[in-house]
């Protein structure tokens, strides 16, 4: 499978990465080179094979329903949450106004 410039532009938009026209043009052969190479996977007979879910046999552990049982994974840490915010006001994160 291969991509054209329109697809590259669409993918960049889905991924929220602004790209210029030149960058889009440059990405077309680059991505096609890589995608052409991974296409060889199509040769592999995978009939009856399940996709990998856990690389090492392990079962999903769940937690008990306890608030802030571990301070590292609990709430009540607003200062830590906001410490690196590019724009925080009144305890909120601020972003350019969204019109819904």
């Amino acid at each position: 499978m291969s991509v054209d410039k329109e697809t590259v532009t669409k993918i960049a938009s889905l991924a929220r990465i602004a790209i210029s026209d030149d960058e889009a043009n440059a990405l077309v052969p680059e991505l096609n080179n890589i995608l052409g190479w991974v296409d060889q996977l199509g040769e592999v007979d995978v009939s009856g094979v399940e996709p990998m879910t856990a690389v090492i046999p392990n079962e999903l552990r769940m937690r008990e329903d306890i608030i802030n049982a571990d301070p590292l994974t609990g709430g009540g840490v607003r200062d830590k949450i906001l410490a690196n915010a590019p724009d925080a006001e009144d305890g909120f994160f601020a972003v350019p106004k969204v019109i819904e």
Partner: peptide, 13 residues
Amino acid sequence: DAYYTQAQKVRTL
């Protein structure tokens, strides 16, 4: 399916 599922099946192999 063509890419991701196929790759995870190959991973199983």
